[in-house]
Amino acid sequence: MVSVTTWNINSVRLRMPIVERFLKEQSPDVLCLQEIKTEEKFFPFEAFRDLGYEHIAVHGQKGYHGVATVSRIPFREFSRHDWQDNGEARHIGVELLGPGRGMIVENVYVPAGGDIPDREQNLKFGQKLDFIERMTRWAETVDRPSLIVGDFNIAPLESDVWSHKQLLKVVSHTPVEVDSLQRFMDAHGWSDIGREQVPAPERYYSWWSYRAKDWTKGDRGRRLDHMWASPELARQVTGHHIHENPRSWEKPSDHIPLTTEFSL
């Protein structure tokens, strides 16, 4: 069995204590982090190695964005795509070399897209749609059993948000974003593992705003984080876990970890 976790950590150095706690409690084989907010030279390599995660790939930049994949399983760096088309560190891919040999794990942080869902009024929203379009063109070429995980910053289904009606015009749940993400799914035939394991309309959120002092009050969540697999890989899924507890830990991320297990 191989287990893979994805987590938008919102600053890996600031939140290393909760990362350490999570790894000690759950021990996934592979951890994909987004929004690490650090350059590679400042990444906490030793802290991860002390926890048994000796294999590390980092694509970082100063203060913003950034992704990293750490693993107990040997891997090789497989890819770095600039789907933002401006040099931002938002993707890294690795190929597992031990258990699960040959499996590709793509780790991505899709732009949030600003506040106004109109590319004419909001450059960031246009950049987000263009980012997903470049991902879609890439997905058409994928020919290996692949898992793409991360913060997609889109909650596609009505049951992926606390109020479909109230969020229809809010960035992350607008029809144009949902349509864009659907084209990405169709380009490779990705399987949405989360919703295969927790079928709609069951409750499933991965993000709650910092604006609420008590994130559980009203439960105003969104499913922004995803784990999508190639069809042949999706057939080997044996479990999927939504770890909500870390949202209540000291100095939490606004996102929670998700873990999928495979019989590889």
Results as ranks from 00 to 15, higher is better:
G63Y: 09
P111E: 00
R72K: 14
E106Y: 07
C32A: 12
S230K: 06
N245V: 11
A187V: 00
A112E: 03
L157I: 02
Q166W: 09
D179A: 04
D192C: 12
R220H: 11
E20L: 02
P111G: 03
T141I: 07
T238H: 12
P156F: 00
R222I: 00
W7R: 07
V198G: 03
D179E: 13
W249L: 12
K128G: 05
S3N: 09
V149S: 10
V2R: 15
W7A: 06
I92H: 03
E120Y: 07
L147G: 14
W215F: 09
D151N: 09
R13H: 08
D143H: 13
W249T: 06
W215R: 15
V67R: 02
D160R: 10
P175R: 04
G93A: 11
M103I: 13
L51V: 08
V110N: 14
F262A: 12
E244P: 06
D50R: 15
H59P: 02
S172D: 01
E95A: 14
M135G: 05
A112H: 06
F22L: 01
V170I: 07
L14A: 13
S191M: 09
R101T: 13
P231K: 15
H81Q: 04
S206M: 07
G98T: 13
Y53A: 04
D214T: 08
S180C: 04
